[in-house]
Amino acid sequence: MNNHLTALTTGALAFVLSASAATADTWRYAHEEAASEVQGVFAQKFKEEIEANSEHTLQLFPFGTLGESADIMEQAQSGILQFVNQSPGFTGALIPEAQVFFVPYLLPQDEATLQEFFTNSKAIKEMFPALYAEQGLELLTMYPEGEVCMTTQEPVKSPADLAGVKFRVMTNPLLVESYSAFGATPTPLPWGEVYGALQTGIIQGQENPRFYLDSTKMYEVTDVITCIGHNNFTTAAMANKDFYDGLSDADKTVIANATDAAFEYILGYQSELGKTSFDNILAAKPEMEINILSEAEREPFKATAGPVEAAYIEMTGDTGEAILTQMKADLKAAEVATQ
Score class of each variant (00 low, 15 high):
residue 2 N to Q: 14
residue 4 H to F: 15
residue 12 A to K: 14
residue 12 A to Y: 14
residue 12 A to S: 15
residue 20 S to V: 15
residue 23 T to F: 13
residue 27 W to R: 00
residue 28 R to Q: 08
residue 32 E to Y: 00
residue 34 A to T: 08
residue 37 E to M: 05
residue 41 V to G: 06
residue 41 V to K: 01
residue 46 F to M: 03
residue 53 N to L: 09
residue 56 H to P: 06
residue 58 L to Q: 04
residue 61 F to G: 00
residue 63 F to V: 08
residue 71 D to W: 02
residue 74 E to Y: 11
residue 81 L to I: 02
residue 88 P to W: 02
residue 92 G to N: 10
residue 96 P to Y: 14
residue 100 V to P: 02
residue 102 F to E: 01
residue 102 F to D: 05
residue 105 Y to I: 06
residue 109 Q to N: 02
residue 117 F to H: 11
residue 119 T to P: 07
residue 121 S to E: 12
residue 121 S to M: 09
residue 122 K to S: 12
residue 127 M to R: 01
residue 131 L to E: 00
residue 134 E to H: 04
residue 137 L to P: 08
residue 140 L to Q: 03
residue 142 M to G: 03
residue 143 Y to I: 08
residue 146 G to D: 09
residue 148 V to C: 03
residue 164 G to A: 13
residue 170 M to Y: 03
residue 173 P to D: 15
residue 176 V to Q: 04
residue 177 E to D: 15
residue 179 Y to P: 12
residue 194 V to C: 01
residue 197 A to I: 13
residue 199 Q to G: 14
residue 202 I to K: 15
residue 206 Q to H: 05
residue 213 L to A: 13
residue 215 S to Y: 09
residue 216 T to V: 09
residue 217 K to V: 07
residue 226 T to G: 09
residue 240 N to D: 01
residue 241 K to W: 04
residue 258 A to C: 11
residue 261 A to G: 12
residue 264 E to N: 10
residue 265 Y to T: 11
residue 266 I to V: 07
residue 267 L to R: 07
residue 273 L to D: 13
residue 276 T to G: 10
residue 277 S to T: 08
residue 278 F to T: 10
residue 279 D to F: 09
residue 286 P to Y: 07
residue 286 P to C: 07
residue 287 E to K: 03
residue 292 I to D: 02
residue 296 A to H: 01
residue 300 P to C: 03
residue 301 F to T: 02
residue 306 G to R: 13
residue 313 I to A: 10
residue 325 T to Y: 00
residue 325 T to S: 07
residue 328 K to V: 04
residue 334 A to Y: 03
